[in-house]
Amino acid sequence: MAKSISPRAVLGLLLALALLALPPVALSLGEPFYIGLASRMLVFALAAMSLDLILGYGGLVCFGHAAFLGVGAYVVGILGHHAAEQTLLFGILPGTTSGWVTWPLAMLCAGFMAFLIGLVSVRTQGLYFIMITLAFAQMAYFFFVTLKGYGGDDGLSLGQRSTFSDLVSLRDKSTFYYVTLTMAVLVGGGLIKVTRSRFGMVLRGIKENERRMLHIGIPTFRYKVAAFTLAGAVAGLAGALLANQANFVSPAMMHWTRSGELIVMVILGGMGSLLGPAAGAVVFLTLEEVLSAYTEHWQIILGPLLILVVYFARQGLYGMLPRRRADR
């Protein structure tokens, strides 16, 4: 038994090799554009995993997840803006482009916002929860639209990418890709650990039957808020990465259709599996890239495809993978 290599392991090994080999291959083909695209995919993979934590495991249908992404991106954007202009934020804080400061701060701000929104939102149920998360995201969207000091709806160009002392230079596309890959693997791995811990079990329990969890003495409210906060923080990190990838931040990142697309990525990949939604993000962006090169009317294919996935393949792509023996 132990000798036979499972198809899953083979798949994983191939994937890891492909991910590592991508930048040199793209460069040798003279197509550095695809390194940027792959980085973008990894960023959205991370964002989709963070959403899956609350959506797939906790059953919290958050229709405003893009707001956390946007806040993370704006932390990098705004501090970078002050650094470039050599002005002070709130009249006291100097700007910075140091990723040692901005990336954790992006997580902190997005996480704190998620904590506050979570406190209010997770009391509500069903459609009201969907709607109230949407409403908060709309508030954030319009807040940044009207924040003319930082470009408002015109967005804000980043003077330069985040710096990490002299350790790595993100200006180089390949380096940025590997940093993003490392982040996605580390944080994604962390999320997987979380879902397998007691915390993850409780979350799943809440999704199955919240009343039962309450009856056995588990403070479900606190668990839900904690999960929401964690998901927000990870999305904030994805946002900080996205700002660096695009060299540009704008409220369009927080538009409700962006939140919708994140949910689509999760469902497409198969919710409640973390790796599935990550793959879902990659597939979604690939579809966008491939179909839009083939026809600009690619959404006329994506729309019905989505309906079919929801109707027939509730497990998403993940459900189509060969399963581990233990899962059967």
Partner: peptide, 28 residues
């Protein structure tokens, strides 16, 4: 009608798919 008994998440997604479809249809 086949989505009436599904949960809200499925409904949101399926009808989100319809938005994409109709917007693109009109564009075409």
């Amino acid at each position: 009608h086949s989505f009436y008994r599904r949960d809200h998440l499925d409904q949101v997604l399926a009808t989100f798919g319809m938005i994409l479809f109709f917007n693109e249809l009109v564009r075409m």
